[in-house]
Nucleic acid binder design. Structure first.
Lengths: 246, 246
DNA sequence: TAGTGGTCTAGACCACATT
DNA sequence: ATGTGGTCTAGACCACTAC
């Protein structure tokens, strides 16, 4: 068994378990450890790395949760995947596309203060008729329309959400910059036929299938801050995720 | 602040942190703690419960991961949701429907040993032409067809997968009964139009939209055991999940 | 029997938010 | 200044697996 070298800086603001899990993940993606390999035992690793067993254990657990490692009592810890698959994240479509190198842009079609109807009020814990900002954007990727995105945002978190910012940045990116912290998302993914109007906007034939996503986002106080109702051209977009049994 | 009573049995095979997190979750769903309430501090809770702080902390963390609680350093731990939303799980559609009280059944349309084509071989880490079991089922819920489900399963885990068992049980349920432990799923959710044949099977109009799910399942050794390619009547099925920022 | 991961304890120090 | 959660240690005992 090769020694897994590890550079640990206890003075760093980055927690030790995170330093370790990142370097361990790098070792796996580099190929120092390949699928099927066993790690040394937790006790040995903690010794080699010069940290306590609970800290080593926590670092390993991070990679178990990502689906890279599997632990079996009485047996050991084994590498089962070399790379992290994309899991469902709290990122926006904009971030996803940018990460994939697609240079996304947005056309802001509507951006105005509105009043909450019954559905919006229910989703955002408001009263019917309360003010909300409504936003409709057409997301463009690789020069082609990809999605129609409608959002309702509570006024308290709207100050940075300008049309100019939305053209070049994702909504959550803008919110985070205004000290708003999206934390918990409740989403529903479905499919339906496009209407004639939607098809025209997305430059697809009328009745072509859409992948739909409805998402209510809560911040770190449990306050519902945003409702999104999005429709994607199903021939160009799908949702990937990795689920690890808990 | 009311005292959160807790019945802990240290001799139970159920870990203490799990006993605590379940009872705490019950207290929240009962309404003993409502949205916005703060929990006592970790140190106080550990004292009240008669357990160590790391153990109390782990119990709380379970509910944070489920999106029921939010913790803020220097502030405290707050209830943000009363109920656990359905999260993406390693359960089958059968389990989902049964839990919802829909009495699902299956019609096994095809069930035979086949040879892996290029796509199946790639997904399951096999060579082209290797034997795989192919399975096609029509899932019925509330007397109506809901989904067309096609699976390819590696022969090593097939012994319990009989047509009779499949009519009344979910695939993963059968696999688990044969000491196979599904652990990691890589899934892609999309949408497309139905073909005439699919529409006839699902009793929908031809061209109506389908919600599609493709899933590769690995067991606890990292071995790819099963590929599923499923098509759901989009008017009757959608995927719900809760995502908590990590 | 030996070795593994799973759980648990009783402390400690720190960063952060509030008062 | 106080109290919160975040991190970390150095042990301990246990359940499980493999030999």
């Amino acid at each position: 068994m090769t020694i897994l070298t590890m550079e640990i800086n206890p003075a760093s603001p980055v927690p030790i378990y995170h330093q370790v899990s990142e370097q361990l993940q790098d070792a796996i993606s580099r190929g120092d450890l390949v699928k099927g390999d066993f790690l040394p035992s937790e006790v040995l690793l903690a010794e080699q790395w010069g940290i306590s067993r609970p800290t080593a254990r926590r670092a390993i657990q991070d990679l178990v949760d990502k689906g890279l490692l599997v632990r079996k009592r009485g047996v050991g810890t084994q590498v089962v995947n070399a790379r992290v698959q994309r899991s469902v994240r709290l990122s926006s479509l904009f971030d996803d596309l940018a990460a994939a190198g697609s240079k996304p842009t947005s056309v802001v079609q509507h951006w105005a203060l509105d009043t909450a109807n019954s559905e919006v009020a229910t989703a955002l814990d408001l009263t019917v008729g309360a003010p909300v900002m409504q936003l409709r954007r057409l997301r463009i990727a690789d020069m082609l329309p990809l999605a129609i995105m409608v959002n309702w945002i509570i006024p308290e978190v709207c100050q940075g959400v300008t049309a100019a910012a939305l053209q070049e940045h994702g909504l959550y990116e803008i919110l985070r910059a205004s000290r708003v912290r999206p934390r918990i998302a409740h989403q529903v993914i479905g499919a339906r036929m496009s209407t004639a109007e939607e098809a025209a906007m997305l430059k697809i034939s009328s009745g072509a299938p859409l992948l739909t996503m409805r998402r209510v986002m809560q911040d770190d106080s449990g306050r519902s801050i945003e409702l999104g109702s999005h429709a994607y051209n199903a021939t160009r977009y799908s949702v990937e995720m990795t689920v690890v049994d808990s």
